[in-house]
Design a protein around this nucleic acid. Structure first.
Lengths: 345, 345
DNA sequence: CTTTAGCACTCTCGCACCCGGAGTGCTATT
DNA sequence: AATAGCACTCCGGGTGCGAGAGTGCTAAAG
């Protein structure tokens, strides 16, 4: 509750010890076992007093009277601020897992897929990687006639995301018309962010009142049918490790969670909502239930993925609050760096 | 066991009744309740005799003595042959679900994604849709320079699958070189199956001994780096409804199954292995454990998806043997027809 | 005033036990 | 051949009990 907890060193140590023990074992921690584990010597009774205080200030909970204590969301929040100040060097074994997992990724899609895999492996939770978004920059666009009034639009962005969409037009457009439209877009908009491009193009189409301008008519038809993709359909989501959630909840809850995570676009929105383009570090977000009630007591550990300074995706671990934060944070951080190297020209 | 079961009408009826009741309730079926449900009147004792026979011939099992009977794989196999002869008309409500679920699919990827969703919804099991494969026919290929020796290859197939791959070449190729290579491929190989195309191209490259042929050198570089995609990386897999498997197995088993289904390429292989290009109907496959031990006691209900006569993907429902076969079969069958309409020129 | 030891109390969990319900197999009867 | 009756089996749920772990409180010790 208190945003700036008034802990003495005693309280802090006990709290940290409880959190770490709980993350390890998953079972409520009692004063006796804690005193035994922590060789510093501090009798169970004293620990009990501290625990009692921490329970009152809302950092600990008891599943039932005469059970051990369990950390609350507030406790984890505090714990993470502690961790942020520690050394952030990644362990050798994690580094090995990541590099061997990502080494033969050749394209962006492959990199993202492997990233979600590696993240789930290291964290033993759910790994997510999202590619794309409205900030993506146009590299090249191409239209292909498929006959029967259908056109396939392929958009390639600078970071290497490829987006294709089949359009069903009302009227036939000739191959020449399509070529002209593509050339116009490539020449005028190469290097534009997709979001800006869409609004600008819309403006130009509206300004061009002469109904007989052949090019503009083509563009309008193509644009109207979504050749440049809507914001929400422009993201690839790679998600792995759902199986790791088994055992953390009862069946009904588990089913709800899996259903939620299966809606990949929703997951992409989640990351988008909580990860900030300006953030420099990995962010740990509690309170996901504000966005999605099913994810109560879950935590998001994520970072935007940048290519040449622009955000082109995000990486994250999602799981229950009982999670090895140190591991997860360093892993996300490390992969973020690899991503920048991977995509830089 | 017996490939041609020597059932009298009595046995057949009892067996069918047991299977249907078990599919409905999921609990072992006893003679008493069966006699009560089936108003035809046939005393529990008589039913017991029949059951006893069926147990000996391997069509029924008892979880333990003095429990009801449960159908074996053999029983389901037999049951499905029965169903194949019944009316295959789809129910109105299923039809509604399918059509509303698929109606605003504009491109192939969207269609397949919705298909997996709809299939999982109707069957209450796992829905799978796979797009692509070596039989896909080339419509158009395009190369884009991305700088730093990297080239993005985009392959569009006749049915609308788009496949992109980023290549890292040893030597730079100019935009002009890439255009020439793309034009060569488009002019010579449009309409070829990707599998044949690859082998033919390889042959031509080898025949062309003159090291100084610029075009062939470009093609070789592009081909070597997989511009035309390997067989196994050429398939998009859409899988939904994993959450529906909860409750059908204990936690450990469930975890294994989810892990297995997360390996999408493996799932694609599974469908490829059991669905035959020549089959005209929906196929029901038991004994998946031969392919993947984790899928013991699971069943595959699937069909290849054809576009203009060529197999370009597959649709299926996967789940435990206790499944509503009638529903699932008609749904897969119906969507297969929709798919053909959707893709035909 | 803080820390610690002691003690009574509480709650869960595992185990043994019992009993009712559902189902079976067998036998005698129609 | 079909059925009614009957003894038997097994699971599952409910109950009772004791061990273990943990707590809160109080009183003594530093």
């Amino acid at each position: 509750m208190a945003p700036a907890p008034n802990f003495g060193p005693r309280e802090r140590e006990v709290l940290n010890a409880i959190i770490e023990a709980y993350i390890l074992t998953g079972e409520p921690i009692g004063s006796r076992s804690l005193s035994r584990a922590n060789s510093e010597g501090l009798s169970p009774a004293s620990i009990r007093n501290v625990m009692s205080d921490l329970t009152e200030t809302g950092y600990l909970e008891q599943p039932h009277t005469s059970a051990g204590r369990v950390p609350t969301a507030e406790a984890y929040r505090y714990y993470v601020t502690q961790i942020a100040n520690r050394s952030r060097s990644i362990s050798d074994v994690d580094q090995g897992v990541i590099e061997s997992g990502l080494k033969d990724a050749s394209d962006l899609a492959g990199f993202m897929e492997r990233t979600s895999h590696v993240l789930s492996q290291i964290s033993q939770r759910v790994g997510v990687a999202v590619a794309g978004g409205p900030k993506e920059v146009l590299e090249h666009i191409h239209f292909t006639r498929l006959g029967d009034n259908r056109v396939l639009a392929v958009v390639i962005t600078k970071s290497g995301v490829v987006r294709d969409k089949m359009l069903r037009l009302e009227h036939e457009l000739s191959a020449a018309d399509l070529d002209i439209a593509a050339r116009y877009l490539n020449e005028n908009f190469r290097g534009w962010a997709m979001g800006n491009l869409r609004t600008e193009l819309q403006k130009r189409i509206e300004q061009e009142r002469s109904e007989y301008d052949r090019l503009m008519r083509s563009l309008q038809a193509l644009y109207k049918h979504g050749a440049l993709a809507d914001d929400r359909h422009v993201q690839d989501v790679y998600l792995e490790g759902a199986a790791n959630l088994i055992g953390n909840a009862d069946q009904e809850r588990l089913r709800e969670i899996l259903k939620t995570l299966e809606e990949k676009q929703r997951v992409a929105e989640l990351l988008g909502a909580y990860l900030d383009a300006n953030q420099e570090q990995v962010r740990v977000v509690f309170g996901l239930e504000e966005f999605e009630p099913q994810l109560k007591d879950f935590v998001l550990i994520g970072s935007p993925a940048k290519a040449n300074g622009e955000v082109v995706g995000s990486l994250a671990v999602i799981g229950p609050m009982r999670i090895d934060y140190q591991h997860a944070i360093t892993a996300v951080s490390y992969i973020t760096q690899l991503f920048e190297k991977f995509t830089q020209e």
